[in-house]
Design a binder for these strands. Structure first.
Lengths: 341, 341
DNA sequence: TTGTAGGCGTTATCAT
DNA sequence: ATGATAACGCCTACAA
């Protein structure tokens, strides 16, 4: 089997307590001489500590759980990267869990993470609309923070970007280009981010004193094909529109496909916008005007928060809200005036 | 603290051995009556087993390590998904490690994974060109499999797709469209996949008895900007070419950008191909003709292999080689004949 | 069918 | 400065 602290102790003619001390860099209580000797023996033997055993006694694994819907969705890799990099900085590692937004899967994962005694959990998945999933056992709470999920009732802190603000910004921009008939392809309504963005859309529309036309509002599930289908529905409804605002980039890509398939030119005939600024959106044709979320930073901040929680600090600010940023590219044009036709 | 096996035992008026037996579903040696009682108490108390403690005695954590260069690279999410789904099927979880292809980072991660006593490792990162990284300590080998990295000298099994075959297919296809002046943008030469694909290119070219023109061959690092730069270099070299074969989709996207920026039309003036068939490649304009790797399956197969290894099975076939598939879309056209100009 | 007890590799609390 | 030794929570012979 593996080399243990015992082997090192025997070889170095010291007790395991001493070995443990030097391994853990306890500054006090071990002479330079023995420290050097122990280190040498440990290195010679190729010893490395067993974190499982250590975890059992310290009750700390230095592992974090990261729960997300689907890493295959281009929105998430950056989050993961932010989480991983930051966790690493603090000496933690990440167990990754894909839930496909199934609360069944999510519950199972949370159970497993707890069984594994992870030190904390970051969750950017469903979890119903409250913290219940995390209370498998009422006795032991585990530190956790919500990421990109603004829940109504939660005691856990959360990190997200201001969807109302972001969407308001981009719709405002569209309106300034002269558009008044602005379709909207929403994300799933029960999703808080979708709700926020929709609010932002309505806010901008209302402030510009434009009437909302419900026939121009469809709901999708944040996927490319949803964007495509909703766009088709809108086109076929026969309602007039000069711009389409999508609740995320993926659906905007789907909408663009649909528009192109009908020979509708972007942005000459119709303007299109996305949301998120995933990598793809600067590669589409035309390049997507969208709202950039600081995705990577969100991951970093979530870990910062979680680490504080783990350290027993009480978080004063339960909500860390980031500001998104309008990214103007090529998919929005000025509306055609009648006299220009 | 948490509820332990002891609490359950006390409450159920049995020994911890009995509780352990029912928790682990040992079929023998516990009456239905006590089993039911124990289960009830466990559930009432919200007991769940502590995998850290269990791992210490069983020497099994049911955790796998997954090492990859960068989850942000669109090639990897599907691999991760395949790995995670399959691992899950077998009751394992995944610790994710991003190395940025730094062998320093990689070594650190391998050390940590071993300290955490993961049951096995899947590696799709550099690790020099041999297994040395995994021999931090010569005494304890850890089961591992290489994924998408065909190493020269390794005793570990590996899963990859046949790059020679795949690239040969697509270059063949281009040649059949009448092209003879075919530029090539390679991946980093020390990378085995890049090497394989380059071989495939040469093979197809040679079989068609076309002379290779070294001025039309550039090397990038699999990133969009590399494709862009290499393409620019080729354009500026003044050499004639009617097609550009790229070693992956990302570089093809960069190449397309470069071409467009010079007003060169695809595929009318120049044909372009990619490799991998990541999601983006069906979204570019024009849609990319490319070679599809069964990315998700690669992840699944790697885990299948690893599980066998962990189970102590001896793997007869050290190499699992998958066949990629040509995906014809819109970025390749017939070469212009002189009389068509 | 059930219980006792040793041990997994560490850390941490006492002594010495 | 160092060494015994008792936990940590669980599994697993071995006994009863």
């Amino acid at each position: 089997m593996s080399i243990t602290i015992k082997d090192v102790a025997r070889r170095a003619n010291v007790s395991i307590a001493t070995v443990s001390r030097v391994i853990n860099n306890k500054s006090d209580g071990v002479s330079d001489e023995t420290r050097k000797e122990v280190l040498k023996v440990a290195s010679d033997l190729g010893y490395y500590p067993n974190r499982v055993a250590r975890g059992l006694v310290t009750n700390k694994t230095n592992i974090l759980g990261l729960i997300l819907p689907d890493i295959t969705n281009p929105f998430f890799p950056s989050i993961v990267r932010g989480v991983e990099d930051t966790a690493n900085k603090y000496g933690y590692n990440i167990i990754l869990c894909n839930t496909d937004n199934s609360s069944e899967k999510e519950k199972t994962y949370i159970k497993i993470l707890k069984e594994n005694k992870v030190d904390g959990i970051i969750c950017t998945s469903v979890a119903g609309s409250n913290d219940d999933s995390f209370k498998l056992s009422p006795n032991d709470k585990i530190p956790f923070v919500w990421l990109d999920r603004n829940l109504r009732e939660t005691k856990a802190p959360m990190v997200y970007t201001d969807g109302v603000y972001g969407m308001c910004q981009i719709v405002d921009y569209i309106i300034k280009q002269g558009h008044k008939k602005i379709a909207y392809i929403s994300g799933p309504k029960l999703n808080f981010s979708a709700e926020q963005r929709f609010k932002g859309y309505l806010k901008a529309i209302n402030e510009a004193e434009i009437d909302v036309n419900n026939d121009l509002i469809k709901e999708g599930n944040y996927q490319i094909q949803d964007g495509n289908k909703c766009m088709m529905d809108i086109i076929e409804s026969g309602e007039e529109f000069t711009a389409v605002v999508c609740a995320n980039d993926l659906m905007a890509i789907g909408a663009i496909e649909a528009l192109k398939s009908r020979g509708i030119r972007i942005p000459y005939d119709v303007s299109v916008t996305g949301y998120d600024d995933i990598t793809i959106s600067s590669i589409t044709y035309p390049k997507l005007t969208t709202v950039a979320q600081p995705i990577y930073e969100m991951g970093c901040l979530a870990v910062d928060l979680l680490i504080k929680l783990i350290g027993g600090e009480t978080i004063e600010k339960k909500e860390v809200v980031l500001k998104p940023e309008l990214v103007i590219r090529e998919s929005v044009g000025r509306v055609k005036r009648n006299w220009e036709i």
